[in-house]
């Protein structure tokens, strides 16, 4: 099995203060910590496990700037064989479609059995690049994948549906799968592992090396555009319990008693 995994470097925003930048179309990122997109971490792990069980190779690819290198190095330490960084200012400013087109141009001459993406990127949450790659490659695809069983020439996947339900479906190979969190437990990467992975190839290419016209790249290749960002108006806010730990805890106990759930 030769597997390609698409990964994105994203800011960690769940616990961070979000500030909209002066363009009004993006957020300030200097104060944010970055790392691999959570979904992509699971996708890399899944690829490495399939390789360990069935043989083959794992290639990781990312579109982004030089700061993505440590993220790619980490995936090499997890067990990927090779990494490719698509780095060119003209790649930026596009939507999922432009990103998918660029990834497709970079990968279309590579032979693979599986192409994995995350279900969605944790920053923008579009959830589009994976299925779009399926369409651009004219290959079957499935998203929300929580289990992959490999057989000859075909795979059976479990997809997550609403309300805890699931679905099994069969796909011919090659195919494109978008991986959902929880499919496995991504391995821990040690300093030693990172050091060992140093000898693996991490190559970088720009727009000139890709069989794609400039009109298809970045903002000009995009079908949609972020017109503006704004902080959502607060619809309903909680009544905040104030005071030191003992005081707020006592207030909370009073509420539980009043609601009749604690005696």
């Amino acid at each position: 099995m030769d597997i390609i995994v698409c990964v994105k470097r994203v800011p960690e925003t769940a616990e961070a203060d979000i500030i909209i930048d002066s363009s009004g179309k993006d957020i300030q990122t200097d104060h944010l910590a970055f790392g691999i997109n959570e979904w992509d971490d699971y996708a890399v792990e899944e690829a490495v496990r399939i390789k360990e069980a069935h043989g083959g190779t794992v290639t990781v690819v990312s579109l982004g700037n030089a700061e993505v290198q440590p993220v790619l190095r980490r995936t090499l330490a997890m067990g990927a064989d090779e990494a490719l960084l698509l780095n060119d200012p003209v790649f930026t400013g596009g939507d999922s479609y432009a990103i998918a087109k660029t990834l497709h141009a970079a990968l279309k001459d590579k032979k693979f059995d599986l192409l994995l993406t995350g279900v969605q990127a944790g920053d923008d949450g579009y959830g589009q690049v994976g299925p779009m790659l399926g369409e651009l490659f004219q290959l079957p695809s499935a998203s929300m994948v929580t289990r992959i069983e490999v057989a000859d020439e075909k795979i059976t996947v479990t997809r997550e549906l609403e309300g805890g339900m699931g679905e099994n479906c069969e796909l011919t190979l090659p195919s494109v799968l978008s991986i959902q969190t929880g499919i496995n437990e991504p391995r821990y990467v040690s300093i030693m592992g990172l050091r060992k992975a140093k000898s693996k190839t991490l190559s970088e290419v720009g727009a000139d090396a890709l069989p794609i016209s400039g009109d298809d790249l970045g903002a000009s290749g995009a079908l949609t555009e972020v017109a503006s960002l704004y902080l959502p108006p607060v619809e309903k806010t909680a009544e905040m319990l104030e005071g030191d730990t003992e005081t707020v805890s006592a207030k909370m106990m009073d509420i539980l008693k009043k609601k009749g759930v604690v005696g």
Partner: peptide, 22 residues
Amino acid sequence: TASGMEFAPRLSAELRWPLASD
């Protein structure tokens, strides 16, 4: 949804009709 998330992006790429998701 689990279904729309799968085929809507493909439809968008096939027809080149822009998609705003979620």
